[in-house]
C-alpha cells in the first residue's frame, strides 16, 4: 500500500490556495483505499485546480477546458477496472462544461468528480464564474454580478447523480471521507469542494466559509430525494448564511457500465478483437 500518491511535482497554486487542502484530502482518500496507483486515472480540465493531475503519480490526463467528464467517460467505458477521478474548477465543470455535467449525472457512470469550487475564474485572473454570488465585483463584473449562481448540488441531484456531497478544503479530513466514500460508491459521485481562491476572491474566504458551514449529522437522511433537494437549496433559502457539508444525496442505481449490453460482459479492453471468420460472416449478411 502506497504511503502517498503525490508526485514530486510542485503544484502551481498560490500559497494558501484552497486546492492544497483538496489535494491532501484526495491523497488521504487514496491512501485509505490503497488502490494500486497504476489502476487510477485522474482527469483534469484547465484552470488552477485542473492542474491537480500533475501532483499525483497515477495515470492522468490534463485535458482541455471543460471536457473533464467526456474524457473520463471514454476512459471508464474503455476500461471499467480503472478508478476514474475527475478534477477541475467551477468554471470548468459548471460553466464551459455544464452540458457534460448534466448528462454525465444522467448516465450514472462510475466516476468520482471533485469540483474545486472557488466561485471565481482563478487561472484567468479573477473573472466571474457560474457560482459567483450576486453582487460580487470581479474583473468581468466590476459593477457587481447580476446573474443567479448555479447550485451544483441541486442540479446534480435533479440531473440524476447518485452521490452528491459538499466538502470544504478547510476541513481536509472530512473532505477525504467524502471523497473516499464517493470513490467507493458505484455510480456518479459529485463532490463540490469549497476551495477558496485567496488571490482573486476577496469575498468567499476561509473565514467567510467557517462562519457559515456546518456538518450534517447522523440523523440526516441522504437517501430521501425530496429532503435532499430541500437541503440542497438551503444556501438559497438562508441567503448563504448556512452551508451544509457532508453527503447530501445518495441513491443506488445501476451504473451505465452495468446496463450496457457490451460492457455487462466485462471491461471493453479485455474483450477479444473479432476473428476473420466473424468478419466474413458479418459481410455475408450483405451479400
Amino acid at each position: 500500500m502506497a504511503t502517498s500518491y503525490a508526485s514530486d511535482i510542485k503544484p502551481i497554486w498560490c500559497p494558501g490556495c484552497g486546492d492544497y487542502g483538496v489535494h491532501a484530502a484526495l491523497n488521504k482518500a487514496l491512501i485509505d483505499l490503497g488502490i494500486d496507483k497504476s489502476k487510477i486515472m485522474i482527469v483534469g480540465g484547465i484552470g488552477c485546480s485542473s492542474a491537480m493531475p500533475h501532483t499525483f503519480s497515477t495515470y492522468a490526463i490534463h485535458g482541455i477546458h471543460g471536457r473533464v467528464l467526456p474524457i473520463a467517460m471514454g476512459v471508464k467505458l474503455a476500461n471499467d477496472e480503472l478508478t476514474v477521478i475527475g478534477v477541475g474548477g467551477d468554471g470548468d465543470g459548471y460553466g464551459i462544461g455544464g452540458n457534460h455535467f448534466v448528462h454525465t449525472a444522467r448516465r450514472n457512470l462510475d466516476i468520482t468528480y471533485i469540483v474545486m469550487d472557488n466561485q471565481i475564474y482563478g487561472l484567468t485572473t479573477g473573472q466571474a464564474s457560474p457560482t459567483t454570488l450576486i453582487g460580487t465585483k470581479t474583473k468581468s463584473t466590476p459593477f457587481g454580478d447580476i446573474e443567479e449562481p448555479i447550485n451544483p448540488i441541486s442540479v446534480a441531484i435533479s440531473a440524476g447523480a447518485t452521490y452528491v456531497a459538499r466538502g470544504f478544503s478547510g476541513d481536509p479530513m472530512h473532505l477525504a471521507e467524502l471523497i473516499k466514500n464517493g470513490i467507493l460508491h458505484k455510480g456518479f459521485a459529485v463532490i463540490d469542494a469549497l476551495s477558496p481562491c485567496v488571490t482573486f476572491n476577496a469575498l468567499n474566504t476561509y473565514d467567510w466559509f467557517r462562519q457559515r458551514v456546518y456538518k450534517l449529522d447522523a440523523s440526516y437522511k441522504a437517501e430521501d430525494k425530496a429532503n435532499a433537494l430541500q437541503k440542497a437549496i438551503e444556501t438559497e433559502t438562508t441567503n448563504w448564511q448556512k452551508i451544509p457539508l457532508g453527503l447530501i444525496y445518495k441513491e443506488n442505481r445501476p451504473t451505465y457500465n452495468e446496463l450496457d449490453i457490451t460492457l455487462k460482459q466485462g471491461s471493453l479492453i479485455k474483450q477479444p478483437l473479432p476473428t476473420k471468420d466473424q468478419v466474413r460472416s458479418l459481410l455475408d449478411g450483405y451479400a
Binding site: I64, P70, L77, N99
Partner: peptide, 24 residues
C-alpha cells in the same frame, strides 16, 4: 458484437470521449 457505441450530448463530448477511450 462487443463494441460500445455512445451517443453523446454533443460532438465535443464525442471526440473527447474517443480520446479518453483511446488513451485507455
Amino acid at each position: 458484437l462487443g463494441v460500445v457505441f455512445k451517443q453523446t450530448e454533443d460532438e465535443i463530448t464525442a471526440i473527447n470521449a474517443t480520446i479518453g477511450a483511446a488513451s485507455a
